[in-house]
Amino acid sequence: NDGTEGEDGKIKIVAAHNQTSPDSPYQAGLLKFKEVAEEESNGSIEVEVHAGTIGTEESQLVEKLQLKAADVVVVSPGFMTQTGIKEVDLFSIPYIFTSYEHWESAVDGEVGEKMADIINEKSDNSFKLLGYWTAGVRHYYGKKPLESIDDLKGMSLRTQTSGVIADFWKTAGAIPSSISWGELYQGLQQDVVDSSENAYPFFVQQNHHTTPNGKYITETAHDYTTRFLLINGEKFDSYSKEHQEIILKAAEESVKAEREANNSQEVEYKEKAIEDGAEVNQIDREPFIEIAKPIQDEAAKEMEAVDLLQDIRDLAEEQK
C-alpha cells in the first residue's frame, strides 16, 4: 500500500520525529510544516505528525523513511552514517563549526547544498533533504568547572565511546564512557560518571544540572548540532509540481520555526539552570580547537570529504 497521489489529487504525509515531549523544538518545526502545507494546498495535502509514536529511535525513523512507512523524518548525522553515507558525519565532528552564524552560513549555503546532493545520490533518491534543523549547541557539564583544558585530565565523561567524537575527548584528556541517556541522571547523582556534555534544553529538562556531578557548566560549545529534515525522494518525485513547491515552502518555514524554538529554549533553559543553582563559566576555546584540527583532517580524509571540510573552514575565515 505505498500509493502516493490519490485519485482525488489528495496526498497524505506521515511526518515523524523521535522526541516524545510536546515542547520539543522538533514538534514546533513539524507542526509548522503541517500548518503551512495544509494551508497552502487548501487541504489537498494532509500532514500527520508523530511525536515519538512511530519510533523513539532515529534508526527506526530512517528505516521507515526508506520503506515509505514515513514520508518526512528528522534525524541526526550519526544515524545517517549507518545507512552507508559516510560524509554526513562530517557535521558532527567537534569544533567543525565555530559559531552559530558559521553553522548557519554553512548549512544554508553551498556546503549544505553539496551535502544534500551527496545524501540524495548515495541513497538512490530514497532520501531528499528538505532543510537543516538544529538540536542546539553542546557544552560540557560536570563536577568541576573547566578553567583550562588540563582540567579534563582523567575525568570520565559521558559521550560517544567510538569514532571522531570519542577521539577528540580522549585527546583532550577525558575518558569517554557509555551510559544510556535514561540512566545518566542517576549516574551523575551517584558518581558513576564525572561529567557529560549536551545542549541546555536536553540536560536541564532531565535535571542533570541539579546533581553534584552536573552542576558546573562550562560553555565549550564544541558542537553546533545539525539535524536533517528528510523526505522520501521517490515519493517526492511522484507528487505534482504544485505539491512539491508547497512542500518545499512548508519545509522552509519549518526550518525557521524549529531554529527559533530551539534558540529561545537555549536561553530559557540556561536561565533555569542558573536559577536552580548551577554555575556557568566561559573558557578560551582555542586550545580545544587546536586539538580538534588534526582530528578533523583525519576524519574528513576517511569520509572522503576533504573538500567539504575546506569549504567549511574557508567560511569561518571569511567571517573573522
Binding site: N1, D2, G3, K12, V14, K64, L67, K68
Partner: peptide
C-alpha cells in the same frame, strides 16, 4: 496495516 493506505506491509516484520 493492509487497510492503511500509505503504509507498507513490511513494517510488520520490521
Amino acid at each position: 496495516i493492509f487497510s492503511i493506505p500509505y503504509t507498507p506491509e513490511a513494517t510488520v516484520p520490521m
